[in-house]
Design a protein around this nucleic acid. Structure first.
Lengths: 138, 138
DNA sequence: CAGTATCCGCCGAGATACTG
DNA sequence: CAGTATCTCGGCGGATACTG
């Protein structure tokens, strides 16, 4: 059942685990987004509808203004979200998911679901590992 | 079609984008693995079968010995892989995926597939963004 | 062969102050 | 309101040398 997963061919792996993979690989391009501390959080927040800068800030309490600005800019740059400026006074800026952003959330949400299902097991494994390790000392 | 994704409820989002999420959230636990430069690469390499330290090093040319050791250790600690030592001379150590590791690759491989399908579009968006930005100067 | 042990540079991210 | 502009720090990751 999970065996279809162990069926990556040598060729497939060689393709992914290749020399230029680290710099140019599409997987890296995406994962570098996923890796960011806030990117995915903001995408998930926006999945409930378009939001203004201040709303996103409220929904993501711990984010600093600097990181909110930067992350939104990067997401916009890569086409995950749109950024619409209403030149009113005071200004109003609305962010929204693009089709790309929404489609990213599909596979990503499966990973989130997996994480929820397995995090306890992972935590336990970690605790057990550390316990066994500390026993080595004695 | 993608609309079922925009249906995250406020409650769901609040749950994920919560205060302790940054530290304790299962999503973070997993993403911090995904984020690592080498973790997923090694998991994918191992999906073709158990491998020794040196084999993994060969399959992942750019990795440093230090990072290979550390990443394998972390993956083992969290229960994604097993580490079996044969106390021969010279020693032989074999790494293999656990059920957890294999099951992680299922949702993750969908993200990889998404990345392959969309990386060109993302690259183009980025290039266009940068071009438009440089036009602002003139 | 399969690791440790050090040293070091880079940059992601936070804190704080300022602006159109 | 929605951002810049600086300063700063911790930790990931690379390079190199050594070991059971």
């Amino acid at each position: 059942m999970t065996d279809d997963l162990s069926a990556w061919s040598r060729a497939q792996i060689a393709e992914i685990v290749s020399d230029d993979m680290v710099e140019n690989c599409p997987v890296r391009d995406v994962l570098n987004q996923v890796a960011g501390k806030w990117s995915t959080l903001l995408l998930m927040a926006l999945s409930s509808g378009p939001m203004r800068f201040a709303e996103l800030k409220r929904m993501t309490p711990d984010i600093s203004q600097r990181m909110l600005t930067k992350t939104l800019r990067d997401l916009n740059r890569d086409g995950y979200i749109t950024r619409t400026v209403f030149p009113t006074k005071p200004p109003k800026v609305v962010y929204d998911l693009t089709a790309t952003g929404r489609s990213f959330l599909e596979p990503f949400s499966l990973l989130v679901a997996w994480a929820k299902d397995n995090h306890r097991q992972i935590r336990d494994a970690r605790i057990e590992f550390d316990r066994a390790e500390s026993d080595m000392v004695s």
